[in-house]
Write a protein that binds this DNA or RNA. Sequence first.
DNA 1: AATGCGGGGAA
DNA 2: TTCCCAGCATT
Length: 376
Amino acid sequence: MSKALKTGFPQTLLSWHRAHGRQGLPWQGVRDPYAVWVSEIMLQQTQVATILERYPRFMKRFPTVKKLAAAPLDDVLAEWAGLGYYSRARNLHACANQVMTDFAGKFPSDPILLEQLKGIGRSTAGAIAAFAFHERAPILDANVKRILARLFGIEGALQEKATDKQLWNIAQELLPKNPQDMPVYTQALMDFGATWCTSRKPACITGIERCPFEKQCQANLSDQVLQLPRKVVKAKSPEFDCDMLLLRHGDSVLLQKRPEKAIWGSLWSLPESAWRAKTTFSKPPISLPELLAQVLSEEKISTALKRISLDQGPQIKHIFTHRRLWIQVWNASIGQEIIFSSQNTRWVSLRQLGKYGLPQPIKLLLQGLSLVRGPD
DNA sequence: AATGCGGGGAA
DNA sequence: TTCCCAGCATT
């Protein structure tokens, strides 16, 4: 790497930030390690706009690492509901307890130690260390990968190990000399990637703004900006369908806790059948005992239940990053609460439903039925 | 090295 | 539709 670029890059970026950096985001200027950590986890693979309302709400609900650690996991998941990647919430809770027990309630400043904590990888460790402790530690999120791949004309695909290593090395080398610059520098990288060196409409292509690196940027010089960074094309996501049971008794609905290592892990949802690879054939009608036996793994279904009929409810199409799921909802109502022998089920009154972490499509479904309060 | 894990916004 | 996003953990 040329010495001019190595010293010039951080200074130019800092100047750029003074004139064009994003302002007014709720977590900007925050130096409390706990608050920094929450924001970094919340922003993983999640766009800023999604978090704007949720971050202050989370911080108000769990103002300190101590309170977060002491809270029931279900409360954390309920607060996280709708944000996706629920292992983040489980790890957040576990990490808070790690910090309490292993570090006396204080986040360590060393990125090597931070990376040992649940849910904190190298990039998040670098961000926390830089923002909260002025450590000269690099980050390598999607913004930085894109900026560096273009600036240095990195041709390898992002998924390749060698490319990753190469980018980390560059990110390390480009760090500003002065540790005091680390918070702003780190923020500047993210801002520049998010607003100017964007994936599809970078400033150098739109011509709306004049990129301060246009003379050094290898991708720009070779007219490859939109081709970098390279990615491996992913296969089309497979399609599935399943049945879900909306079983009501009075003002209660039957929920089922999902397994931890699965999609919507540890959230509460409606009892559901196994997912089937989607076919074009319509399914035959299903009886309540059959469905109960499937979704609850109940061996004995009482004769009273056998007289209950199922009403076909709505079909819901839900898109994940890697899957497409069609959900057939079946409505049923029973006269008395039944305690099922299968674990992980719970009757929840409508009034309490909002306190449960529900998958987004289920939350929307129940809201549509006026079972769950909307946002206050 | 490859895969699983959400949800929403943009084009 | 497809792509993208302040990634990490697991296998």
